[in-house]
Simulated scan of single mutants.
Amino acid sequence: MTNQTPAPPYDYSPIVDRDPIVWPDGKKVAVHIGLNVEHFVFDRPSTSIWPGTAELTPDALNHGWRDYGSRVGIWRTIESLDRHGVRPSVLLNSSVVDAYPQIIAAGVDRDWTWLAHGRTNSELHTGLSIDEERRVLAEITETIRTATGRSPRGWMGPGLTETHRTPELLAELGYSYVLDWTHDDQPFPLTVPDMFSVPYSVELNDLLLFCKGLTGPDFLQMVVDSYEQLLADSATSGRVLPIALHPFVIGQPFRHKYLDQALAYLAAQPDAWLTTTDEIVDAYRAQL
């Protein structure tokens, strides 16, 4: 018996060979804000701005940097989202439910779309047996459902991590899409029945951009440039513009106004559909 080489959970499909996608009301570019609402375990190495202290306990420098998002940055970001009428697609660590209940309450009041984003971003979703993973996913799902009143339909792993079984196990729990595969400008079916991929970005992503030295004006220009190119591409079929945000990054005072300007720009575009990942996958599935 030969060993089967693992394959990604999707088939190759060049964008030029697909049936056209039509977004609601004749819109051309579906824009979603992927708002990462995360919890990091104290005294465990996690996302860091300065690796020199990441292994220390306590690591006041990096933990404080991350914690700025839940204490300050998220509230500044919420003000801007509200001002421009944008409902984010929230990538939620389930441990946020206990750690920051005020954020959950704010999102419920605003009818945010909730996606599961693992338990904590201090743990990657990897190295699990099938039984362990089934239990972990069920616990994450139930925690979010109980806190928000809705079962999440979308998944993005912490650090965009999955096992080879994750899409299949998510389908068992009633999920319909993942954001982990960042390689397309459109939704598409996975090889797991009734499961889809929805675009997310590790390029137009504040955490990666600003930690490489780019500035607020750079971020704003990238949003504009991305929208203009996708709008041009949409002459043949609808496109998706994902913008990935982390409150401890974009919520810093010297960056915030550029997010606000980017949202103002997008809200003023007649061909932009400011929407959520749930609505994107529903509109796409209805056309299959």
Rank of each mutant, 00 (worst) to 15 (best):
E123W: 11
H125W: 01
T126K: 12
G127E: 03
L128I: 11
I130P: 03
E132V: 08
R135W: 09
V136N: 00
A138M: 09
E139D: 12
T143C: 14
T143Q: 05
I144K: 04
R145G: 06
T146P: 07
A147H: 15
R150C: 12
S151P: 07
S151Q: 14
P152Q: 12
G154M: 01
W155I: 10
M156Y: 14
M156Q: 15
G157W: 08
G157Y: 12
P158W: 13
P158N: 05
G159R: 07
L160P: 03
E162P: 07
T163V: 13
H164R: 12
P167L: 07
E168W: 01
L170S: 06
L173K: 04
S176T: 04
Y177P: 05
V178K: 06
D180L: 03
W181L: 12
H183I: 14
D185C: 06
F188W: 07
V192N: 10
F196K: 01
V198K: 01
Y200F: 13
S201D: 15
V202A: 15
V202Y: 09
V202Q: 12
E203L: 11
N205Y: 12
L207N: 12
L207E: 15
L209M: 14
L209N: 08
L209G: 07
F210Y: 06
F210T: 12
F210C: 10
K212A: 09
G213Q: 00
L214C: 14
G216S: 08
D218Q: 08
F219S: 04
F219T: 01
L220T: 13
Q221T: 10
M222C: 09
V223P: 00
D225S: 07
E228K: 02
L230G: 00
A232E: 09
S234G: 04
S234T: 03
A235M: 14
T236K: 14
G238T: 10
R239F: 10
V240Y: 03
V240I: 04
L241D: 05
P242W: 02
I243K: 02
A244D: 03
P247S: 08
F248L: 14
V249W: 00
V249R: 02
I250C: 01
Q252W: 04
H256G: 10
K257Q: 14
D260T: 15
D260Q: 13
A262N: 07
A264K: 07
A264E: 10
L266P: 08
